[in-house]
């Protein structure tokens, strides 16, 4: 090997930026793997069910809601959920406001199903999921889906064990979708979406939630060709011109195509980018208001990360910029900050 041939010491200045590495400052922090290796002996889950990884609960990223406030919110949400149609028609602004404040964790799954229209879809299609669930599915899709089952939130207790109930349900939901929309099939970015839903609701509900997200919230995002995501990339870039001209000019100058940084953000609705507390808050608003929430979060992150000349001094090229966008300062992803912005 060249390294030893010439007698020079091996230089290892490697750095890697991977999906959930938002807290990485230097190479050594990648060592989180060792924590993972230890989880069999001492597994502790956080309040969201994570046993490790960068998205785990941290005091800095989450806001604690006092118990009395939470009780009050639960009462309000229970009332809304029991008179849902009336609330949606007559007092939608109030519903939106309450989504912005954050849906109480105990009611989040139900609220998401109602907000997304998944509940109505389920009722209109009684027995449909069971029918799809009982069919074998196209081997072409089964093969790809199976490869992805252990690669969704591997740090979450629900998905951590191979062949465990989380992975089984994920398989059922994704396979059912390929049978429901055979012309669309399976897109790898659907898996995290389905997994987030499954953390909050049973498989049938998660299936209808996924249907709604794929067809109403982010139509075309997962279709062969991925045109819709590319179009939204261009729209995001156009919006950035107004919200942060400095960031816009920088990306333009270095010819950094939106598709390079926003694909995962948008296709996974930030579920693999933000700390978990923020993911949930963003989804509360996203399922209420739709894709514009995703655009807003994207603009905030771009503006905070690339919005001043000072920040851009250190990133003189495509690679450096991408690195910066992969390691967004946690303070900009804090739930309170994001919701305010």
């Amino acid at each position: 090997m060249a390294k030893t041939e010439n007698g020079r010491p091996s230089v290892d200045m490697g750095s890697i930026r991977t999906l959930n590495s938002s807290h990485l400052e230097d190479e050594s922090s990648l060592g989180s793997d060792s924590e993972i290796n230890g989880f069999t002996s001492e597994r502790q889950t956080d309040r969201y069910g994570f046993i490790g990884g960068a998205q785990q609960y941290s005091e800095e990223s989450a806001q604690d809601v006092p118990p009395e406030v939470l009780r009050q919110r639960e009462v309000k949400w229970l009332d809304m959920l029991s008179h849902w149609d009336k609330w949606m028609i007559k007092r939608f602004n109030k519903v939106r406001l309450r989504c912005q404040k954050g849906i109480p964790p105990a009611l989040r799954g139900r609220a998401w199903l109602y907000l997304s229209g998944g509940k109505v879809k389920r009722e209109q299609n009684q027995g449909k999921f069971q029918e799809l669930d009982s069919q074998p599915g196209d081997p072409k899709w089964i093969d790809v889906i199976e490869k992805d089952l252990h690669r969704q939130f591997p740090f979450h207790e629900m998905f951590v064990s191979r062949g465990g109930h989380g992975q089984q349900d994920l398989f059922r939901v994704l396979k059912a979708y390929t049978l429901y929309r055979p012309e669309e099939g399976y897109c790898q970015a659907q898996a995290p979406i389905a997994a987030v839903l499954l953390m909050h609701m049973p498989a049938e509900d998660a299936f209808w939630g996924l249907v709604q997200i794929c067809e109403k919230y982010l139509p075309g995002y997962y279709s062969p060709g991925l045109e819709a995501i590319q179009l939204d990339g261009e729209i995001l870039f156009a919006l950035l011109r107004r919200s942060s001209p400095i960031a816009f000019r920088h990306l333009e100058k270095h010819k950094i195509d939106p598709i390079l940084y926003m694909t995962e953000w948008f296709m996974c609705a930030f579920s693999r980018t933000l700390p978990w507390a923020s993911v949930l808050r963003v989804w509360d608003m996203f399922l209420c208001d739709g894709v514009k929430i995703i655009f807003r979060v994207g603009l905030v992150l771009l503006k905070c990360t690339l919005g001043t000349r000072e920040k851009l001094k250190t990133c003189q090229g495509l690679y450096e910029t991408m690195e910066l966008l992969r390691a967004i300062d946690p303070r900009y992803m804090q739930e309170g900050f994001l919701v305010r912005e």
Binding site: A2, G14, S15, G53
Partner: peptide
Amino acid sequence: IEKRFKDESNHTIGVEFGSKIISVV
């Protein structure tokens, strides 16, 4: 880059990247 197998990983959506300096000839 890390000289280690990454067992718990997400599948890639879009892109991942990394860099390393090596000594060659």
